[in-house]
Design a binder for these strands. Structure first.
Lengths: 210, 210, 210, 210
DNA sequence: TCATAAGCGAGACGGTACGTCGTGTCTTACG
DNA sequence: CGTAAGACACGACGTACCGTCTCGCTTATGA
């Protein structure tokens, strides 16, 4: 009654052999295929992207694509991960505000650029637990660590109290910026980042709990 | 090179005849079709949903579907709007905190329930300016007004200073909660709402700018 | 290890609803599709023929083709049957020799024209019992009856003895002519038919068994 | 519009180095590959046979196959020739009838056994003049000479008149038997051969032209 | 005795056809 | 007239096969 049902394990091969590492594991050729995928993805969106188009553009064949990524969704996920692998180092400017601005600016830029792809990947996440796990591994964990480092350093410098750090909502800064990009009207600007840091995140962190 | 190009005007008929009103304007039969659509949408996601399946399930014909909603995207948008039509009244408990908690709890519940559908609609928004506009009209504006009312009332009660209200980031509260639902790991809980209101939004609103 | 295995029942839909009748049962549109198929088949041969090409040429779509004929082999079989539906009436010239010449000439012409298609269909017969049965029904039985009529009439006229009719080899005349067409070198000519009738078939029929 | 066009010269290397000789010229390994090819060919037919399958079955590599036989058609032709290399000597029993029965029985047996392969090769003949030529060389000429020898001997013995030998239809005996095998329903039996020789070929040869 | 080459297995690759399926349009027949 | 049923053109998906190609490994020859 309801169309094509792809086996749930379809996305198992989407991640490179060593998922825990930050190494990407793709061949040069594979990276090229992913780059083409990403470009077409950004310009046309998920469902207007055809695997044939990627193959043709990259002078490859569909079989080559499907040998590596067993479905279009896998391909797009891989391209997304490849394309958004951001600088892994947490900023360390000596000032909490500057660190947060740096993180926010980076997140805003990346999420603006890859908004269309993120929407596609989010949509695919509804179907695949593997995709959710990969997303978690590749993004959330990474950002979590980065923000933790920044906050810990600020606490050590005495800028904030460790009591102000709430793990329930550690990702307000990147989360809201991503939300703004996803909604596509009013994508986040530098001013957004500044206001978010100065008027929301810093007051929240620097407050003295009553 | 890149496939199917749907005319951009496809979404013109997506909204019921009287878009400004809060009345929905759908026939009982139409509402039934939208309900079926919504159910299949939630269980299968956007691209695994087929118009054929909806029609068959509802003992309708494809022509009937397309006569009302000129494309699959329109149908899904209409179903989404139908399914997420929330209470239009802003809370007025007399306490800013209570108002914010009420809004946050409502947003969290709705976004959790319709996460899959929202992902689908977000994805479609990449393609259609009309869809973006409809989304804006139906949700953002509505929430904007609601939050504005609450904040204005609080300012009138002297709970906050109007200077603390930053229109750049008025939607941190709902935005972050929606983000959490979209990411599907760690969907927002009541505790999330409480922490967000108490530790982030209220400190931000109540701060005295240095 | 060995490629594509199509279910054996694949050819079940290849014959029109009423296989026993001589009516063809095809819609006008379907006949048109088969005509295009036959033309491309004759000019390119079986494995250089693509269903896509047929569809494009006939301004149809692949789905339309596959809705009627569940595989390329079915399509080709149907086209072959359609294309070689010959005049159903047995000749009756009053002379056995003339009757045999008429049959032989007709068989030679048809088999020459459709040699390529026949080779393809023969090849497909290796796989499908249904195809064999259809072939039997459409061709062999028909010719058998035709020749039987002619011989019976000749026996009634006293031209031959019924004892000379050997059911083991009733199809030497058409069989050898078809063989000549299939081998494609030395396709049968009118002289072939004449020699076959005068020097082989008639002597065989008119001999007095020792 | 119509697909893959293989260069017509593809079959140039299909015959062993010394085409005139009756020696086969294949290495032991090559003969083994052809044997596997022949087996798969008989069980699956031409287009269900894959070069990959042959290579895997024979623990060879595709490169090895294509180094020897530049295309699938070449491979199949070679396997066919290898598999049907029959006794080259014409029978000489001293009796025309016995000679013809011997030839017919041999042809019937061979054509029954290799019917599937013959259908495949016939089908390929549509495309390749080289294959046609090879077929002609390997089979037709050989049989032609064999039958000529038998008939000449019979004429020398006075069993038949040389005037009765008609070169237009010298191959009625083998041709009809092959036809019967190709049609696969009613493959030729010993009785078929006997009837064909006694009731058709001998009367034709022994007739006195009016 | 070792090295240089030639043949082989394994299998990735570009290309292309197959057969399936979903969208959006259109026709037919029913009420 | 609106509707259910469903055929239709279009085009993407994912699979499979052909013929070419590279990679190592083995074996056989030549210095």
């Amino acid at each position: 009654m309801v169309g094509r049902v792809v086996p749930d394990s379809a996305l198992s091969g989407a991640v490179p052999p060593d998922p825990g590492s930050d190494q990407c594991g793709w061949t040069e050729r594979e990276a090229e295929l992913l780059t083409v995928t990403l470009r077409l993805l950004q310009s046309h969106g998920y469902d207007r992207l055809t695997v044939d188009a990627v193959a043709t553009e990259a002078k490859a064949s569909k079989a080559t694509m499907y040998r590596r990524w067993p479905s279009k969704a896998d391909l797009v996920l891989a391209a997304f991960i490849e394309g958004t692998r951001e600088s892994a180092v947490a900023p360390n400017t000596g000032s909490l505000r500057e660190d947060l601005i740096a993180i926010g600016t980076s997140v805003a830029a990346h999420s603006r650029e890859h908004a269309s792809t993120m929407r596609a990947v989010l949509n695919e996440m509804s179907h695949s637990a593997d995709l959710r796990a990969a997303m978690q591994d590749k993004f959330v964990r990474h950002r979590h660590r980065m923000i933790e480092e920044v906050l810990t350093a600020a606490a050590e410098r005495g800028e904030i109290s460790t009591a102000a750090i709430n793990p329930e909502i550690w990702d307000v800064l990147p989360g809201y910026l991503v939300f703004r990009s996803l909604m596509s009207e009013r994508p986040p600007t530098d001013e957004t980042v500044r206001a978010l840091v100065d008027d929301v995140v810093l007051p929240a962190l620097q407050r003295t709990r009553p």
